[in-house]
Design a protein around this nucleic acid. Structure first.
Length: 767
DNA sequence: GGGTTAGGGT
């Protein structure tokens, strides 16, 4: 049977620095025994922390005060050092714009630490983990300290700071979590929100929270840093604060516009042409929208080069590098490496190369002018991924990638007229495009009860806020009046989407949390996508065969559980790589799932939530079905389904691991984690449900009173509530399920097991 | 019978 497994100290690998003393004799923070493995102190401990020994009459980092002008890094921002320091001293908020290469991120915190006396740290947020880490390391080097002493960083799983860290780089998500523990941010004297123009969800929420801190702490200082020039909007929002612009240091980029219809074809033609004409050391970077376009372009270009060679032409060699986030790590290295003499490098990338990865040595950029953007539709409750024109600043950012190491050329595959007319002035803030349930739960956790009148820089549509509240209500995180419940408070403890937190809490009641925590960790790292799809047709067959071993009629969760277990048995974190290769599984995703799993168990242990092993696997399915009942669907046609809540026709996502027992034995009733809109509505992460598990929960769908949920803050046209219909559809599904009878199901199950055995035999032969 | 998502983050 199941038992309580104590895993609080099972983590073998502590990524944090293990030295006990810093260079200057003060202790470098190491993980304490009573701390959870997520590494962050509990709320109580933040308040109990010993007071700093910093003296407000002295600079934060006295050793920097002794620097001469020539000791500072010679970057464009240096010229503005005095101005910036004075502005920060005299103003609570400033908005600062600076192009790439100005040095604002690395230098300004040092200027402030050299001249200003404070009792708290300087915190600098970044939208990306890699940026927080690499910038912190560079600044630590400039300050001449070990990273984690005067200068440090904090990202998920990794807190490289000490009590006396004066300059702390951190991801915006970490700062948001810190804010949940202390809304007044007493740990910090200065906060710099960097890359504000990217308008990431977490940074946008921090905008409003930092404004509140300003109102409550007159001595607090806020810097908002952005790359673009739309400063008036920011200044207006931040109490009409002063602005300053710092020039960047980049090389000139010549811009050419070519209007075209089919940009992938044009890319092949242009690259082929440039390759024939230009010297090989002029590397080329192409921006396309997704994996499919990238593969088509790479294959087309490869064919053309082969053709030229076959025609007896003398063309130099070309290293073709596709670049997008779902490639295994070893592909990334090829992008950074300089190819051998006489070989050109071609990188065909998504917008990952716009911000996250800087490719060295680029002379030519080719920009298709489009990007895939995720949009959440509140009316249907589905998200979709659309190809839309990039913003004008993003187009500028892309072209700038040609001028990093010398003068460059950017070829834009759209007319200037089209750009002026159709490209938006700024990137649409993520908060306007996303499902807000997670954000609203965090706000409620900070006792900000009214998400409608929250001080957004760009307020989301009311229907998106309502959709988020409705979801939280159905998950049990808030009551009918929008007040946070005990369940909601527990959900907010986990760094997860509300639906995943809910599944975890449900599993504690059903005594199967040991399994659920694996499932949730896999989903938190994009569980439906742990499988790697090779480009080659023949190899795809092998990959599909490998994946079929994890098909399971119970649902995706069952397959993911088997997958994780097999990976662990094959060596997991340390020796699981070979297993990942033969099974076409992303090793990176598995390692991350392991980290997330450990973190979640740490939190559960800290709050004394029992992590039990299930006595039967179906308990996991039951906990999932109870959590996701609002996304239940009954069988419509062959393998199509009809949602119980609104009667929409949906299908199962093609990458799902769920399968029928037999050809016509698709489950009568399923639930899913989310619905996405592609060519049809598709259910992602599907789980077979038993009607009697969710029968009593379904009526809740029809009890949503939007006006009450919003606390009377909003006028909504009431959706034509289809009262009783969800219950009726559920009743019919239950009847059909009973009619089918146990005998049929057990026959189907044995047929299924036989087919599974055959598949495995076939796979063994292929090896 | 085919059908399969950009980039981030706690």
């Amino acid at each position: 049977g199941g038992g309580h497994r104590s895993r609080s100290r099972s983590r073998s690998r502590d990524r944090r620095r293990s030295r006990s003393r810093g260079r200057q004799g003060f202790p470098v923070r190491v993980k304490k025994e009573d701390e959870s493995s997520d590494g962050k102190p509990s709320k109580v401990k933040v308040e109990d922390r010993a007071p700093r020994s910093w003296d407000p009459s002295k600079p934060l980092l006295p050793k920097l005060a002794e620097r001469q002008d020539s000791d500072w890094a010679q970057l464009p921002v240096l010229e503005y050092r005095k101005t910036i320091v004075d502005m920060v001293k005299n103003n609570q908020v400033i908005v600062l714009t600076g192009e790439t290469g100005s040095g604002k991120t690395t230098q300004i915190p040092q200027y402030l630490a050299a001249e200003c006396g404070w009792t708290g740290r300087i915190g600098v947020t970044q939208p990306r983990r890699v940026a927080a880490v690499s910038v912190a390391r560079r600044v630590a080097e400039e300050v001449d300290c070990e990273c984690g002493e005067d200068v440090g960083y904090a990202i998920r799983f990794e807190d490289v700071t000490s009590p006396l860290t004066a300059i702390k780089y951190l991801t915006d998500g970490i700062m948001l979590r810190e804010c949940l523990g202390d809304r007044f941010m007493k740990d910090y004297s200065v906060v710099m929100l960097d890359e504000a123009h990217e308008r990431s969800l977490h940074t946008d929420v921090l905008f409003a929270l930092m404004k509140e801190v300003c109102k409550n702490r007159p001595e607090f200082r806020l810097l908002v840093c952005s790359a673009t020039l739309n400063t008036t909007k920011f200044s207006d929002y931040f109490f009409n604060c002063p602005m300053i612009d710092i020039p960047g240091r980049t090389f000139p980029v010549e811009i050419q516009h070519i209007d075209c219809q089919r940009y992938v074809d044009k890319v092949m033609e242009l690259v082929d042409h440039l390759h024939a004409e230009q010297p090989p050391q002029h590397h080329i970077l192409v921006f396309l929208t997704g994996e499919d376009e990238i593969n088509r372009a790479c294959q087309g270009i490869h064919r053309r080069i082969i053709q030229r060679q076959a025609d007896g032409e003398e063309v130099c060699a070309m290293r073709i590098c596709p670049l997008h986030a779902s490639l295994p790590v070893e592909f990334y290295q090829r992008v950074f490496d300089e190819p051998p003499e006489g070989t050109r490098k071609l990188v065909v990338a998504t917008n990952i190369a716009e911000t996250s990865i800087t490719v060295p040595g680029i002379k030519f950029v080719i920009d298709c002018g489009a990007v895939k953007q995720k949009i959440f539709n509140a009316e249907s409750g589905m998200e979709s991924l659309n190809i839309v024109p990039v913003s004008k600043p993003a187009a500028k950012q892309r072209s700038g990638r040609a001028g990093r190491t010398g003068p460059g050329v950017c070829i834009r595959l759209y007319s200037e007229k089209k750009m002026m007319k159709e490209f938006p002035e700024e990137t649409m803030a993520e908060i306007l495009r996303t499902n807000l349930s997670s954000t609203i739960l965090i706000l409620k956790g900070m006792e900000i009860d009214d998400p409608v009148n929250f001080d957004y820089m760009d307020p989301p549509d009311a229907d998106k806020i309502v959709s988020g509240l409705r979801m939280l209500y159905l998950l049990g995180a808030i009551d009918a009046d929008g007040k946070m419940t005990k369940v909601g408070r527990d959900m907010a403890l986990f760094p997860l989407e509300p639906s995943l937190s809910r599944m975890l809490l449900a599993s504690i009641l059903h005594k199967c949390a040991d399994e659920m925590v694996t499932v949730v960790a896999m989903l938190a790292v994009d569980g439906a996508n742990v499988f790697y799809r090779p480009t080659m047709k023949e190899e795809q067959l092998v990959a599909t065969a490998a994946r079929q071993r994890f098909y399971d009629p119970e649902g995706d969760y069952a397959g993911l559980l088997r997958l994780y277990k097999e990976w662990e048995e094959a060596g997991g974190m340390r020796r699981g790589l070979a297993w990942c290769k033969t099974n076409y599984v992303h090793s990176r995703a598995m390692c991350r799932a392991f980290d997330v799993r450990e973190q979640l168990i740490g939190i559960m242990n800290r709050y004394e939530m029992p992590v039990m092993q299930a006595t039967r696997q179906s308990l996991v399915g039951r906990a999932i079905a109870e959590s996701l009942f609002m996304n239940a669907a009954r069988r419509g046609g062959k393998d199509t389904y009809e949602t119980l809540s609104e009667g929409r026709m949906v299908s199962i996502y093609p990458g799902s691991l769920i399968c029928p027992f037999g050809k016509d034995d698709w489950a009568e009733l399923v639930v899913c984690l989310e619905m996405v809109w592609t060519s049809t509505g598709q259910m992602r992460f599907v789980c077979t449900a038993n009607a009697k598990w969710i029968m009593d929960l379904l009526p809740k769908i029809n009890t949503v009173d939007i006006r009450r949920l919003c606390g009377d803050q909003i006028k909504i046209k009431k959706k034509g509530a289809d009262v009783g219909s969800a219950d009726q559809r559920a009743e019919e599904a239950a009847q059909k399920e009973i009619k089918k009878g146990d005998k049929d199901v057990s026959d189907a199950k044995s047929r299924f097991l036989e087919r599974k055995r055959m598949r495995e035999e076939k796979l063994a032969q292929m090896k």
